[in-house]
Design a protein around this nucleic acid. Structure first.
Lengths: 316, 316
DNA sequence: TATCCTTACGGAATTCGTAAGCATG
DNA sequence: CATGCTTACGAATTCCGTAAGGATA
């Protein structure tokens, strides 16, 4: 048994049991993958993969039990490398973050500035993706840290921590009838066509829930992934916008008015997530604290060991 | 990085950083070990071992962090094999138990009989050792199950479960003055020379504690590891014996009398232990239930996953 | 001086890629 | 008939043992 074989098995599961794809992503010949997997199965004395004729179609019964342990082994192997880097490249290295447009554009710049001051030699890689994709990337260990308001804490292989809360606001052109109302109501908003986030992005779910609970039908004429696009369409007169409050900049967004809407929609909690069982290097832990300053040391400890059990926390 | 390198590191720690011994126990040449360890260190970019000149003397700072993870990886690799065996050799295989003389001689025969009936093809290997050795053997994964009244639950890498409780008794020749007393007292026992277990064996600690608490000095003239030896010396008139109650057989031990002493010494709890993080095959779980029939299913579940966290229990 | 680790080199074993063959949808 | 897995074989790489050298207690 060797680690290469375990990696092939993991990748085969991820690639839906297509060994040709496995071979391509791991830069190896396809017969090599076949042979190694067969050898692993021979050594273990069980078939890991269900086969229909020559094709692999799924996991066998033993396979279903083996794969999670294989995943854990490979996570730990990665942890070994991370721990070593912690010492060898003290304040150097790569740190990759997957996040949504909203966080990357409005929440992270300040954080990144302080981080870069403290760790000038760490290369920060910001990957923009959808909340679902972010959760997947974290779970697979493709990025160190994920940050998103949605989906992140739904994934079983991701451990999350609340980073900060924020509220929605309504954005209208300054000559809009709503621009001067004292207190905004859901009914008032529902009168107008709405431009807001796509489903699954930046608290969109909270918006829909609020109107649904009030029994109101809304006319969403346009959806976008980011507030910049939304504001552009509001400016162009397509409707009124509902965005994250921090996406509004009074100076830059001249011609638009922001109306507080925190009392209308549930408060949103943006969460930060890491891979369960993963290990966070020192500068990654520091970044977590910059993003979520209210985190207690105990939380952070648990977090940086990827939410392992007590016993295993000690071990790391 | 490969598993061989990790095994070398683990063994080096176990063998007190003597690579020559590592080479011998793993049946490989000594330069091979040196080279592989150096290559692992090169790849990780840190030194795992502290060196004085050419000799290894201990773990470095990174080494101390890496070793527990390495141990976990190797445990999981072993788990993979065990899980596979669970399927491939359904009711076949090896099951090794480390236990003291007392358990092997008096508690286990009945259990082994039922087990063999249920699993005739499983080869049972009984290793006799001291409680400390048993704990070590379990922790290292040299045996599947350990059983002992002492020391077992002191080891951090062993998870234990109570198996059964038992009491001590006093054994005297039938013509001894104590043979006919109504209720035995510690004072009465302390009058005579005593033959009993060695320190660290079969509840000896409880015996010492009882006399110490009563402020009595006792004259232990002879100690042994097993009750058969103790009884032989009692018969030969060296003194009165204190043994485990179940070690007395009225038929076989003709000429001796057993006096109940449960009211004098703390009740003993024999525990059964497995390696933390280890995986128990089906027949091993069944053996645990035969030994400790009062175990709840929930306890057993936790036990057979070696006391891992909830998340990891699911995984197995 | 005996023990223990490292370096150097040659042979053995393993791994890996190419090419050809065969099954599946 | 295009996709996907297996088998076969030769090349390349890696691994491992022996032998010699050097450091430590």
């Amino acid at each position: 048994m060797n680690l290469t074989q375990l990696r092939f098995v993991r990748e085969a599961v991820r690639k839906n049991f297509n060994l040709t794809e496995v071979a391509n992503t791991l830069y190896i010949s396809q017969p090599g993958v076949s042979k190694q997997i067969k050898e692993l199965e021979d050594e273990l004395g069980v078939e890991i993969f269900e086969r229909r004729g020559k094709r692999l179609t799924g996991l066998t019964d033993p396979g279903r039990q083996l794969v999670p342990v294989i995943e854990r082994v490979l996570t730990d192997i990665r942890n070994l490398k991370q721990i070593a880097e912690q010492f060898s490249k003290q304040d150097h290295g790569q740190l990759s973050i997957a996040t949504t447009h909203t966080q990357a554009r409005y929440a992270l710049p300040a954080v990144v500035r302080s981080f870069k001051e403290r760790y000038p030699k760490v290369h920060l890689a910001l990957h923009q993706a959808s909340p679902q994709q972010i959760a997947e990337m974290v779970a697979r260990g493709e990025v160190d840290i994920g940050m998103s308001t949605e989906a992140l804490d739904r994934h079983p292989d991701v451990v999350t921590l609340p980073a900060y809360s924020w509220e929605h606001c309504v954005v209208v052109p300054e000559d809009h009838p709503l621009a001067n109302v004292a207190t905004l109501t859901l009914d008032a908003i529902a009168e107008y066509p709405i431009v807001t986030y796509e489903r699954g992005f930046t608290g969109r779910s909270k918006i829909d829930e609020a109107f649904a609970a009030a029994g109101l039908e809304i006319d969403v004429v346009l959806t976008a992934i980011d507030a910049d696009v939304i504001k552009a369409y509001v400016e162009a007169g397509f409707g009124i916008g509902i965005t994250a409050s921090m996406a509004f900049d009074p100076v830059r967004d001249r011609g638009l008015v922001r109306l507080p809407a925190g009392h209308l929609f549930t408060t949103n909690v943006t969460r930060i997530g890491v891979r369960r069982g993963g290990y966070l290097r020192g500068f990654a832990r520091d970044l977590v604290q910059l993003i979520a300053p209210d985190t207690s040391i105990a939380d952070l400890e648990r977090f940086s060991n990827g939410g392992r059990s007590d016993k295993e926390e000690e071990a790391l």
